Computed example of a mutant assay.
Amino acid sequence: MFVSFCSKWKANESSVTCLLALPGGENLLSAHHKITLWCIASKFIIKTFYGHATEVTRLSLVRSGTSYCVSAARDDRYISVWPLVIKNKEKHCVAQLISNDPCVNLSVMGDELTNIGIVTRTGVLQIFRHHLNGKRTRPLKPDLTLQMATSGGKGSSSEPLPIVGTHLCDPTTAIVAYGQSGLFRFEKIVSGSI
């Protein structure tokens, strides 16, 4: 296997825990506790965002007119939304989502109304719906919470099946992966409320 490097540079003193290349190939996001927006050609820092206390583990791009980025951090119940507009001097998130548990998987589907789906450490899917149009002072709570479970036969109760991943397809459809290690199942969930 042949591997070649297009570019290499030292990002900062901390290790990089997450990367996201932006469309067009000109900019890159790198993250540890803070998130840095880079110009790839010049290796120049365009903007730095502050707000996570632990290492960022998930970055996802929202495309809804103005670009935003969504991030989640290790052992953190807050998911943050950041403006990627270079002229905007804001260095803190414009919106926060609060979950019952830390996020282990993240899916974003953006249009006029942005849907953000997170899978929590306890295996629950939470869907947040928000119009990204400026700074919000209070954290948003989920609009929908979904948990999978066994059907439970005669005389037995149903048992939860943890959701391990999700992908939002459109405003009303999500694909979820659930089950135990090695025995995962996939389900397409269609609802007017997703």
Rank of each mutant, 00 (worst) to 15 (best):
S30Y: 07
A72K: 09
V81C: 12
G24F: 12
I116P: 10
L84E: 03
L29A: 08
L84Y: 07
K43M: 11
T57H: 01
C69M: 15
A31P: 07
H32Q: 12
E55F: 10
W82T: 11
R77Q: 13
S30A: 05
L29D: 07
F49R: 04
L22M: 03
I45D: 02
V108Q: 01
T57M: 11
Y68V: 02
L113R: 08
G51D: 02
K87T: 14
V85E: 09
V16S: 00
A21N: 12
G25Q: 00
G117E: 15
V85Q: 06
H92M: 09
V16W: 00
A31W: 04
S64E: 13
L97R: 14
I35Q: 00
S15W: 09
V62C: 15
L113E: 14
Y50S: 12
L29P: 00
L22W: 09
S99T: 15
F44Q: 15
G110I: 05
L61I: 09
S107G: 03
S30I: 09
L61T: 08
I86A: 05
C103D: 09
D101F: 03
K47W: 10
V108T: 06
I35S: 00
A72T: 07
W82P: 07
T17H: 01
V56N: 06
R58S: 11
S15T: 12
C39P: 00
Y68C: 12
L106W: 04
G110D: 09
K87P: 02
G65R: 11
K43Y: 06
A95N: 13
N27D: 10
K87C: 07
V94R: 11
Q96N: 12
L59K: 01
L20V: 01
I45L: 00
L20S: 03
S107A: 03
L61M: 04
S14Y: 01
S80N: 11
K34Y: 03
I86H: 13
D111C: 05
A73W: 01
L113P: 01
S67N: 14
V16T: 10
I116M: 12
S42Q: 06
C18F: 04
I98D: 07
T57Y: 02
I98Y: 10
L59Y: 05
W38E: 08
L20Q: 11
N100Y: 10
S71H: 10
I79D: 02
Y68N: 11
T48N: 13
L97K: 03
S107E: 09
I79M: 07
L84Q: 01
Y68W: 10
C93S: 15
K43T: 13
